[in-house]
Design a protein around this nucleic acid. Sequence first.
DNA 1: CTATGATTCAAACGAACGTATGAATCATAG
DNA 2: CTATGATTCATACGTTCGTTTGAATCATAG
Lengths: 185, 185
Amino acid sequence: MAEIRTADTRERILDAGERLFMAHGYEGTSMRLITSEAAVNLAAVNYHFGSKESLIQEVFRRRLDWLNEERMRVLVEMEDAAAGKPLKPSQIVDGFFGTLLRMADDEERGGVTFLRLLGRTLTEPSEFIRTFLAHEYATVMDRYKEAFFKALPDVPKAEIVWRFHFMLGATSYAIAGTDALASGD
Amino acid sequence: MAEIRTADTRERILDAGERLFMAHGYEGTSMRLITSEAAVNLAAVNYHFGSKESLIQEVFRRRLDWLNEERMRVLVEMEDAAAGKPLKPSQIVDGFFGTLLRMADDEERGGVTFLRLLGRTLTEPSEFIRTFLAHEYATVMDRYKEAFFKALPDVPKAEIVWRFHFMLGATSYAIAGTDALASGD
DNA sequence: CTATGATTCAAACGAACGTATGAATCATAG
DNA sequence: CTATGATTCATACGTTCGTTTGAATCATAG
């Protein structure tokens, strides 16, 4: 079995898809643009991934698998160190958002490109992408929400969820970095 | 000149476009979907607006003209009342975001539909839309930034701009309301 | 009522899209 | 070296896209 060329082709497609989906969105990025940027044949995407939908899911899975594991690992580590006592909210924030931002410095894990793709995709209109992302995030999100509930027992849960949403929004917008409102300075 | 039918057709197209661009994004919304939802002929969009690009710009202009004027009016009114003294930051925040949120209760001005469209479009991948939005926002944004600079003379300007961005992100994400991370509760 | 200009309509255009096909090319096992 | 299965390739398929066209229909002015 020839593995070397396959691995090259697959990764070049994933890299090109990551960058182009970030720059032009899912619908705005054509297969021909991806394959020409990756310097592979047009049919390569369908051969290796099956479809355009499967491709973008694999683009995310490649990065999110690590991010999910790392976020979970950090949280469990902090909880073990706390030995039953509730964590400080700032610890949980750092576990969730700090882990994400440290990913931006790691070019091997997608760097700022993937971060901006992720930030923009949280408001992506395509239904199947949002559904897929929600599913990928579900387990870790629930664990972090539970951690916040324990750390802030006097704050209503609905209020905590709102604050979490606001942090997510502020982060993803800053990350997406469209500068839509920079207005020239 | 027949004005009655034209006005109906134009507004029905704008309403359908507003709702569909919100739900499926710019690239994800076809002319045929818009015209069938608006119950007008396929060629009506090109006849009345010229192109799909011009249509979405008109969808935004219809609402943003009022929002820009209202935000400016509120700010000037507060500054006049303050008679030269700096405004409280919370006043400026309310002038900018309060005005936006009050728009959500006004169905005549687009209500939550336009608000969600606006929230999602701030991270829209299409270049020309972000450029257009930045241009529409530029004047008012600069005036509000200046107001913040005066209200918070001891805070570095770059820090103020960051905080403004975070507020914008938190607001637009909460407004967009994709629930991408609701994870089922 | 008739003429005129604005608007609507059905139909078609060429281009771009995602995907499928079958032959050519490659790396490796025997 | 030859056979085999994986991969790449040029090409084409059917669909959908935004836009255009010219005739039909409408409302109003004279």
